[in-house]
Design a protein around this nucleic acid. Structure first.
Length: 398
DNA sequence: GTCAATTCACATGAAAGAGACCACGGTCTAGTG
DNA sequence: CTAGACCGTGGTCTCTTTCATGTGAATTGACGA
């Protein structure tokens, strides 16, 4: 019997500690959403006019990641959908997650995606942008419906392509004769609307809601209710849920992360052959999540980014590194691995993008007469770092 | 010693180019009846 | 006659380059005490 078969056989023999793992996955939508009743009711109140085909106010939802914004909105929309189908009220819902690449990178793509969601095909590129607007507009208007458009992570969208698209979308109502469209924006960033054009801001946030982070007790509740369905009985040691909740509450009260932590800890426990989920697994899971996440990010970067990152990782053996050092080293790397070196201007941008990704910390300092530059340090823990260096060395063959 | 001007080494912005992708319409070509 | 191959044109999109301007504090050098 081959090795792989053994692995599979073993896997089948071990009685897994999970009952239903997908309950802990981030795309799972639970039936009831604890500690969000108020918000859900409020959303329902705001959206209720839709059922009488009156346009609901545009809604703006704020809250950190993992505070249940998307979940709550989707929950309410699901109810509306069920009701509208039952009573055949012409309401159409559109949901776009602006974070997803290739969907909401540009104005064109976003509108094209909306059109596709409405069941028409449209070229992925090649048409003028105003053409695509016209198509969208016509489809909407001829349907004679009420549209609810959800733009999740709308701050990402505006950061990438500006607020013009929002202006166009909010303005579209005044030109529609048969249909109406109301917009629900979901944002992680409290300060998001500050960057917006005041006109857009006022029309977009006719109603505003804030989702506060979960506290440790609420997180415990959530974890408990989900783990009851996700795990076999009595596999979780005492204190694990509490610790997991406390862990994440201390950071941002991100329920998604708490659930991921629990899931990964479970996987680790299972893989190590343990029959119980112990606190130690939680710590391992924490590290593993970060590592996997970072490795994933790095692998998905273009070659040039990797080269710059490698230079940074290599140079940062010394205590302090600055832009200039890195650029020089980077040029070296390029000649070694047959890359065409980019200009200093571009590498500067790459460095700040790596900073945004959380792989490095870059602080702008001024050394007076000796110039102004970024002081760069690594934001990775040592095991992650060495893993990434290893990957990059292979990728760039240096 | 004090204070404004200077200076460095970049950061940051704006604009535009390069090269990839794609749609569309027109033209050419080969296969069919 | 017609379907499909093959162009040219005009559009988007991403990554880059080019050119221009901004920036914070150590250094400098003039000034007055």
């Amino acid at each position: 019997m081959s090795n792989v078969n053994e692995i599979f056989e073993d896997f089948l023999k071990t009685n897994t500690i999970f009952k239903d793992k997908k309950i802990l996955q981030s795309n799972y939508t639970p039936e009831n959403i604890p500690h969000r009743e108020d918000q859900i009711n409020q959303i329902a109140k705001i959206l209720a006019p839709a059922l009488k085909l009156q346009k609901p106010s545009n809604l703006f939802v704020y809250g950190k990641t993992g505070t249940g914004k998307t979940l709550s909105v989707k929950h309410v929309l699901k109810k509306i959908k069920a009701l509208s189908e039952e009573k055949s009220i012409p309401i159409q819902q559109l949901y776009i997650n602006c974070k997803l690449k290739k969907i909401a990178d540009t104005e064109y793509r976003l509108i094209a995606q909306l059109i596709r969601d409405l069941g028409k095909t449209v070229p992925t590129t090649g048409l003028p942008t105003d053409e695509i607007y016209k198509i969208f507009f016509n489809i909407i208007d001829e349907r004679n419906q009420l549209f609810i458009l959800v733009l999740d992570e709308i701050d990402q969208l505006v950061k990438k392509i500006g607020d013009e698209i929002l202006y166009n979308l909010t303005r579209i109502n005044s030109e529609l004769t048969n249909s109406q469209i109301s917009i629900i924006g979901i944002s992680n960033d409290y300060k998001f609307t500050e960057y917006l054009d005041p006109r857009i801001k006022s029309s977009l946030s006719e109603e505003e809601m804030v989702f506060p982070p979960y506290n440790a007790l609420q997180l415990q509740d959530i974890l408990l209710s989900r783990s009851r369905c996700a795990f076999q009985d009595n596999v979780i040691e005492d204190g694990v849920i509490e610790k997991c909740a406390a862990y994440t509450a201390r950071e941002h009260g991100d329920a998604r992360r708490a659930l991921e932590l629990l899931r990964v800890a479970g996987e680790l426990a299972e893989r190590s052959g343990s029959e119980k989920l112990k606190i130690a697994h939680l710590d391992d899971a924490d590290e593993k999540i970060e590592k996997d996440h970072m490795v994933d990010i790095v692998l998905n970067q273009p070659k040039q980014f990797q080269a710059v990152l490698y230079s940074i990782l290599f140079c940062s053996k010394e205590s302090q590194v600055f832009t200039g050092d890195i650029y020089n080293f980077y040029k070296n790397i390029c000649s070694k691995s047959a890359l065409r070196p980019l200009t200093q201007r571009r590498t500067s941008d790459i460095i700040s993008e790596l900073d945004m990704l959380g792989i490095i910390n870059a602080k702008i300092i001024s050394k007076g007469r000796y110039g102004r530059m970024r002081q760069i340090s690594i934001a990775l823990n040592p095991t992650t770092k060495s893993k990434i260096v290893e990957i990059l060395e292979k990728d760039l063959n240096v």
